Computed example of a mutant assay.
Amino acid sequence: MPLLADAPPRPAIVQDPIPFGARRVGEMRAYTVRHYGLHRARLVAPKVIVEHLTANTSFSATFNTFAPDVADSELGELPGTCSHFVIDQQGTIHQLVPLRWMCRHTVGLNWTAIGIEHVGTSEAAVLGNRRMLRASLSLTRWLQGRYGILTRDVIGHNESLTSPYHHERVARLRSQTHADFPRRFMLVYRRDLAQGP
């Protein structure tokens, strides 16, 4: 998709790809059939950006969580969980997965959401880290400009169930979400996002 005319500039992004070969793509396609009734692994015209917290303190630990294509311990499904981007505590943006592929990062939204992980153990620490927050806002604004994603659709993982794009075919997972980046932190984040660079 071409960049919108007034899109913010692309921030510096380090390419650190996790293995995402034919097997993982096939597993992603099978996942989207089960969960969304879609027959593709491609991320087409994403409408949502989901902000996440890693609950650890290093990029390497995060990379090592996402790189293996193994069933996750929480839901026991393939492909392995992942996120498109990770922002480390120095403010470096790492891209793990090309934006052409869906990632398993948010139940009910993987079909239309870009995932951004922030290395840290608390939302307050992320928002209080100037380099990390500046990188996060820069990346998010660039993605918004590239895909026309509204600020109201930049959400924390904890807000997933309230997204109008949330869709889940598996009944036991329709109320599944995580605690990271709840609304009180995202109100601050979205306010900063709307203020511009």
Rank of each mutant, 00 (worst) to 15 (best):
V33D: 04
V33E: 14
Y36G: 08
G37W: 03
G37P: 05
R40N: 10
R40D: 13
A41Q: 08
R42A: 14
A45V: 05
A45L: 06
P46G: 07
P46C: 04
V48G: 15
H52R: 15
H52K: 12
H52W: 10
T54A: 04
T57A: 14
S58H: 00
F59P: 02
A61N: 14
A61V: 07
T62L: 04
F63R: 05
F63C: 07
A67N: 07
A67C: 09
P68R: 00
P68Y: 02
S73D: 15
L75C: 08
G76Y: 13
L78D: 04
L78K: 07
P79W: 05
P79K: 11
T81L: 01
C82L: 13
H84N: 10
H84F: 08
H84C: 10
F85C: 00
V86L: 00
Q89S: 00
Q89F: 00
G91I: 14
I93K: 08
I93N: 02
I93M: 06
L96F: 08
L96H: 03
R100Y: 04
R100P: 03
M102K: 07
M102H: 07
C103D: 05
R104M: 04
H105V: 10
T106D: 02
T106V: 03
V107G: 12
W111I: 04
A113C: 13
A113V: 12
I114F: 06
I114K: 11
I116N: 12
E117L: 06
V119Y: 15
V119K: 14
S122T: 05
E123P: 09
V126E: 02
G128V: 11
N129G: 01
R130W: 00
M132Y: 00
L133W: 01
L137F: 09
S138I: 01
L139Y: 06
L143G: 07
Q144Y: 03
Q144H: 08
